[in-house]
């Protein structure tokens, strides 16, 4: 067990190091002096010289490399001259907001995806199955940002049911309940819309897995023993059909973070994605590099965790000789 974890940990760290090195390499391959990514033309020359020596931009490249990696690993991503704040401060404010959105999407899409998947597997090749599959493909084909706009148009502008942007209304809240209720209302549209592609993927995964498992010999045996249908379904089949879902988290993470960029942009959600998009417009390069690093870090660690979870949950991997 611990050997497997250590092995996976080392691989993750190597990939992370490669990501950092590649970013550094790209910075130096890009036209212009890399230090100008961190500084801006309008800053006073004295300040520039000061910061250059502070961040090590006047040293040889290989020393810059070590300083840069050390800074990034310690969470020191430089200073954003656009927002007059350290980049890590900006990101620390934004990350919880992105987490709120992505976690609620993950939970929601698992619930809906699993339920729909089981439903389709049980009603296999009926009209219901076709309708659910077809409508999910239809929803999948729509660009997320467009559905978001349409949803805002319908539910916020015309019907006025749900707020169209931000995480909370601008007002005083009397107690924690009205505040929570307000937060949930703001969360509904972004969550629904960002969930769509994941729901259709999870649903298809569960459906196929379930159909597969229902033909397995142990289910056939259970049927032959005359066990009740519900008991077979929920006690034997479900467990094995849902287990591989853990690994999907690792697969979803990059797309989840990418999708969050667009969803946050449309809903003015003050998370990492919106900050990154705005950083392009304002040429806030330190922020972009840091956000890219954080997102990559999240993906790598997410993969690591989901591998470990799967390893813990599936004894075949745990006791198998051929690991990783």
């Amino acid at each position: 067990m611990s050997r497997y974890i250590i092995k996976r940990l080392i691989t993750s760290i190597i990939i992370l190091w490669a990501v950092l090195s590649a970013t550094f390499l790209l910075m130096h391959l890009a036209p212009g002096d890399p230090s100008m990514l961190y500084l801006r033309p309008e800053i006073d020359a004295k300040v520039v010289a000061n910061i250059r020596s502070q961040m090590g931009f006047d040293m040889p490249v290989w020393q810059q490399y070590f300083i840069w990696i050390k800074n990034f690993v310690q969470g020191d991503f430089g200073f954003s001259f656009v927002q007059h704040q350290s980049v890590s401060r900006i990101l620390l404010d934004a990350i919880p907001n992105t987490l709120r959105l992505t976690i609620s999407v993950l939970v929601f899409q698992y619930i809906v995806g699993i339920l729909l998947g089981i439903l389709c597997a049980l009603k296999q090749k009926t009209k219901l199955d076709t309708i659910i599959n077809g409508s999910l493909l239809f929803l999948y084909a729509m660009p997320g940002f467009w559905i978001a706009l349409i949803a805002i148009l319908i539910f916020s502008s015309y019907l006025g049911w749900l707020p169209s942007s931000q995480m909370n209304s601008i007002q005083e809240f009397n107690n924690i309940w009205t505040y929570t209720w307000d937060s949930i209302r703001h969360l509904v549209l972004p969550t629904l819309i960002l969930s769509i592609p994941f729901i259709s993927y999870t649903m298809r995964f569960v459906r196929d897995k379930f159909i597969d498992i229902m033909q397995d010999s142990y289910i056939v045996t259970a049927k032959a023993f005359g066990f009740k249908k519900n008991m077979i379904l929920f006690k034997y089949a479900l467990k094995n059909a849902l287990l591989p879902l853990i690994t999907l988290v690792g697969l979803y993470l990059p797309f989840l973070l990418g999708g969050a960029v667009i969803t946050e942009f449309v809903f003015a959600w003050p998370g990492m994605g919106r900050i990154t998009v705005n950083a392009i417009y304002t040429h806030d390069y330190p922020l972009i590099l840091a956000a890219n690093f954080i997102a990559t870090f999240a993906v790598i660690s997410g993969n690591f965790v989901s591998d470990i979870l799967y390893y813990v949950a599936d004894p075949r991997i745990r006791f198998g000789k051929n690991i990783a």
């Binding site: 790209l26 212009g32 973070l257 990418g258 960029v261 392009i280 956000a291 997102a295």
Partner: peptide
């Protein structure tokens, strides 16, 4: 390992 949109944004930013 790079989330696609972040990678694209970074490349666009770096290479102006």
């Amino acid at each position: 390992a790079f989330p696609l949109i972040f990678l694209i944004i970074t490349l666009i930013a770096l290479f102006k």
